[in-house]
Structures are given as structure tokens and as C-alpha cells.
Amino acid sequence: MLNVKKNKQILLCILVFLVFQLVYGVAKRINLVNAEYQLTQHIENRIAKDLNRLPLPDPNKSSAGNDLAVANYITALNEKLMHHPLLPKVLAIQSNNYDVGSNRKVITHQFSTPTQVVRFAFSLKKMGLFDYFSWLALIASIGFYFLVNYRYDLKLTKNNLVVESIDEERARLVIDLEQKLLINSRTHTSVPLANKPLCFYTALIEYCMAQPDVLLNQNKELPDELVSLANKYFYRLTELGHTIRKRPNFSNSLEKTLSEIRAALDEILLDDIELKDMLYPPKAHGEGSRSKLHHYGLRNVDTDQIEIIGK
């Protein structure tokens, strides 16, 4: 049972990490697109301001320009851009002749002036998958795991303290839905119980506490209220993560269900006759034991001798 809880905690933390990572990755991608656009505008504005002193080739004026001067200008411009996070590098202005490294992304852009169209190209650091990885998301998910684990251990310790604090002189029956156990508070002995008998027995106790004079006969249909209570506890087990099976039909195999309950009580209440007599569904005895005279309900249930954990 503990391993199931641990596995669920781990899966939950992985899900939290994936959500955090997805949010981080999308946000970073949006920021990169905005940064690329702003960088393109910055380079365009810089070149536009320097056009008057930049000897670029101009077909309209039959001017070949000055390649050396343009190269020196590009070098100076790159020195000003070298501290940018994207590591931009201007490759060419009014030229398609440039080399690009394999780990670089090339962006080409052009803008118009009253006299000509100016083209330029620059490269950026190419982003890999690891660049979108968030250490903060990993640390947050690990922290979340330890928080969930701490809260679970704290709750488990609290439940154990509740069981241990029960009066040692007077036995009580503890029904632990979280661990699917019937526990004798005096001896601390416990026995696991399957989903169907556990839900039915818990419902039977609650039903008989509310209606102590009711008669429950195996030859009659189960009262709707009793079935409703049993279904309620089954759904509670589902919420606690114990079962994903189809809801059982509590009306079927009633004798088998009662036998499993009696066997569990025999195991943990062997020396507590008073408590056993109060909480033990009566067996059918003698001739005609399955007749209308047989009644499996509980009488005079003392609420002080019942504890339900996880209700």
C-alpha cells in the first residue's frame, strides 16, 4: 500500500515538472521571438543612421562601393553587439557572400530608403532542446515531492497516534479506510479486508447505529439506505486510490460477504468477547436457519467503541 502511495506521489511530481517545463518553454520561445525582432530593428536602425558614410554598392548609381570599408564597419558593429545574450553577428550588408557556422541561425532582412533598398544578414546562436530546459522547474517539482511526502508521513503518523491513544483498557474497533484494515485498538492487531466486505461492513455499522431496531433478513432485499451507504464507502475507497474496479453489487453473495467479515473479526477480536458480540453479524443456527427468523443486523452498537479513519 505504501508503494502505491509513493508511486502516485512520484507520478504527481513528474506531472508538476512537465507543466512547469511546458510553461517555461513556451514563455522562453515567445521571449526569443520578441528578442529576435527587437535585435533586427536595432541593427536596421543602426545601419540606417550610418548609411550616409557607408560606401555600399548602388546599382542605380553604378557604384561598386568599398568592400573593405563595409567589412571594417561590420567588424565595429559586431563589437558593439558582442554582449547581447543571443550572440548576434552581422554577416553582410548588400551582399550574399558570407559564411555561417553549423551551430548558427541566419536571419535576413531588408528595409527601404528614398534612394535604395538595403539588405543585411546576421546570425544568432542556434537554440537546442537543452536551452529550453528549466532547472527551476526541476527543483520546484523535487521540492513539491518532498512536501507531498512530508504531508503524507505526517498524516500517517497522526493516524498512528490516534490509534495508539485509544483507551487500552477498553478495546475499540478501528476501521482504517486508508489502509483497508480492521484494527483492534487494545492489541493493535489488524487484518486486511477486501473492498466489498469492507464497504458493506462499514455501511452496516453506520446503518445499524442510525436504526438500532431494524430487522435485516437475508431472504429480503437490502434496504436502499444500506446499499447507498455501501456505495458511498466504495466511492470513498476510489477517492483514496484503492480501486478502479467496477462498483460491486452488494446484494449478490451476501452470505459470502458476511462470512469474510466474521472471519476478520474472529481474527482480531478473539479475546474481546464483549466487543465481538456487539459488532459480529449473527450467524444462522439450527433448523430453518435461513428462514425469515434469521437476522444479521447489529444491536446496541456503542459509538464510543468504533473509529473510522479516512471517512
Rank of each mutant, 00 (worst) to 15 (best):
A140E: 02
L173Q: 06
A121G: 01
T113H: 04
N195P: 00
N160C: 02
I142M: 08
A194P: 03
Y98K: 06
F120E: 01
N149F: 08
Y145N: 06
L173G: 01
N96A: 02
L173S: 04
R186Y: 11
V162D: 06
L198E: 12
F120H: 03
H109M: 03
F120L: 04
R170V: 07
Q110A: 03
Q116A: 15
C199W: 07
S141G: 07
R151G: 01
S165Y: 08
N160S: 13
K105Q: 14
K155A: 14
L156S: 12
L136V: 13
G101K: 14
H109L: 01
A137I: 00
F133I: 14
T108H: 06
L156A: 14
Y132K: 11
V148L: 15
T108S: 14
N96W: 04
V148I: 15
Y152R: 02
V163P: 05
K158C: 04
S102Y: 07
I166V: 09
E168T: 12
M127Y: 13
G143H: 06
I139K: 03
I142Y: 07
E164F: 02
L154K: 14
A171T: 05
D153N: 13
T113P: 09
H188F: 15
L138H: 03
F144N: 11
K196L: 08
T113D: 04
H109P: 01
V106F: 10
F146A: 11
K180V: 00
G143E: 10
I166W: 01
Y98P: 01
I166F: 07
R172H: 12
S102D: 13
T157R: 11
L161I: 09
L198R: 11
D131S: 14
M127G: 00
S123A: 15
I139L: 06
L173V: 11
V118M: 09
G101Y: 02
G143C: 07
A194M: 10
F122Y: 15
K155P: 01
I107M: 09
S134L: 10
Y132V: 03
F111W: 06
L193A: 08
L138F: 15
Y152L: 10
I166C: 13
D99P: 01
